[in-house]
């Protein structure tokens, strides 16, 4: 089987298209590259959606934690504490067990509608259940980053906005929001990279993979078990992840440059591979 055929057969294997049966023996390098690459689609799917949706929830959490009103501050702080203080691995397990129990509890309510119970069953599948956990987790971490940025907005800027007679909404839109984003962006980039890496946990925690369609690490582990040679598949995973980490850095770097465009060159924060771990 040539490599082109392998790509046709296994290129979309991770999302259930193409050949059903995974290569069993005489595994070629091409097959490993293609299948692990196809698994990476899951990692990208989880990371992209969780980061995009998490961003908005994180802003809400940060504003909540920064609020003077305890009605907003307490729940936001508690949420951030809960998700930052416990391991993601345990969160996956806990959420999965809850998601399994939910449809059973739903039966007792009974006849609330067939569509509802069907949707609840989706919760225990990785594509939705794990995505929800990742979304909540990244929201908590990013929320804390944004909260830190809100705290370090220069007082003078806020006072100047007041002195100009800006309304609270206008002040938020013109001063608080852009400054918060600019200050938080390097750490937020770090968090996005971490979340992308954390997606590799999904199929190794409670969430089962259906029809052997899993993420990049899932296939790497499969090949390592089959060939008993970890020195080929894991470096391939590393290769893919490094490439996509660099892609994230370039994308977020573009946004960073835009956020900093009004500043003199020397003051701009540069983005690099994370030097310091933020989690």
């Amino acid at each position: 089987m040539s490599c082109i055929e392998t790509i046709q057969n296994y290129g979309l294997r991770a999302i259930g298209r193409g050949e059903r049966i995974l290569p069993q023996s005489d595994i070629t390098l091409c097959e490993q590259f293609v299948l692990i690459g196809s698994g990476l689609l899951w990692n990208i799917y989880f990371a992209a959606i969780a980061v995009f949706l998490g961003f908005w929830f994180a802003v809400a959490l940060a504003l909540g934690k920064n609020s003077h009103n305890p009605f907003f501050r307490k729940p936001a702080s508690a949420f951030i504490l809960l998700f930052r203080g416990s391991p993601l691995f345990i969160q996956f397990f806990f959420a999965y067990e809850i998601f399994i129990l939910l449809p059973k509890v739903g039966v007792e309510f009974s006849l609330a509608g067939i569509t509802l119970s069907a949707e609840l069953r989706w919760l225990s599948a990785a594509w939705l259940g794990a995505l929800i956990v990742l979304f909540l987790n990244t929201s908590a971490y990013s929320g804390n980053i944004f909260y830190g940025a809100l705290q370090s907005i220069p007082k003078g800027d806020l006072e100047a906005a007041d002195a100009y007679g800006m309304s609270p909404q206008k002040k938020f839109r013109r001063v608080v929001w852009p400054t918060m984003l600019r200050l938080a962006w390097p750490s937020y980039t770090n968090e996005a990279i971490f979340l992308f890496h954390a997606t590799a946990l999904v199929f190794f925690s409670a969430f089962p993979s259906r029809q052997q369609s899993g993420d990049a690490l899932y296939y790497a582990n499969y090949f390592a078990d089959k060939t008993f040679n970890p020195f080929v598949p894991y470096p391939i995973v590393a290769f893919y992840f490094i490439i996509f980490t660099l892609v994230i850095i370039v994308l977020f770097g573009r946004i960073n440059r835009r956020l900093n465009r009004h500043l003199p060159k020397a003051q701009r924060a540069r983005l690099k591979m994370p030097r310091q771990l933020m989690r």
Partner: peptide
């Protein structure tokens, strides 16, 4: 030092024990 940046730590957790064992 640079090794762990860019690659998920869980990949190392799966790789290192079996690699060391071999």
């Amino acid at each position: 030092i640079a090794m762990v940046r860019g690659v998920p730590d869980i990949a190392f957790f799966l790789f290192v024990p079996i690699a060391l064992d071999q």
